[in-house]
Computed example of a mutant assay.
Amino acid sequence: MTKAGLFLTFEGIDGSGKSTQARMLAEHLRAQGHEVVLTREPGGSAGAEEIRSLVLEGDPDRWSAETEILLFTAARRDHLERTIEPALAAGKVVICDRFADSTRMYQGLSRGDLRNLVDQLHSLMIGREPDMTLLIDMDPETGLARAKGRQGTEERFEDFGPELQKKMRAGFLALADEFPDRFHIVDGNRDMDSVAQDVTEIVQAALR
Rank of each mutant, 00 (worst) to 15 (best):
P86A: 11
A65K: 01
E50Q: 13
D113N: 00
I202R: 01
D59M: 10
Q107V: 09
T83W: 06
E35Y: 01
F99M: 03
S110L: 15
R30F: 07
P42W: 05
A46C: 08
S53W: 01
I95N: 04
L88I: 08
P86R: 10
H184G: 02
P60A: 14
Q165H: 11
F160T: 11
P130W: 02
A174Y: 12
D187A: 08
V186L: 00
L38V: 07
T103G: 03
I95W: 02
L71W: 03
G161Q: 07
L56H: 04
L121A: 05
D181F: 09
S102V: 07
R30I: 14
R98P: 04
D78W: 02
E50P: 08
R169A: 09
L54Q: 09
E66I: 06
I84D: 05
M105N: 06
L8W: 00
P140E: 11
G149A: 13
R52P: 00
G152W: 12
H34E: 11
W63P: 05
V55W: 01
G58Y: 10
E66R: 04
M138V: 14
R104E: 00
F183A: 00
E141V: 12
S102D: 10
S102N: 06
M1K: 13
R150A: 14
V199R: 01
N116V: 08
L135M: 15
D191Q: 12
R77A: 06
R146G: 14
H28V: 12
R98A: 08
A74F: 02
T73D: 05
R62V: 07
L135P: 04
F160P: 01
I185L: 13
I126H: 05
L114E: 05
R40W: 07
P42Y: 02
Q204F: 10
R62C: 14
G127P: 00
G108Q: 06
A170M: 11
R169Q: 14
R111Q: 15
K148F: 13
W63H: 14
A4D: 09
G91Q: 15
E81M: 11
A206S: 09
D159W: 00
H184S: 12
F157N: 05
R77D: 05
Q204N: 12
T142N: 13
A87P: 07
Q204Y: 09
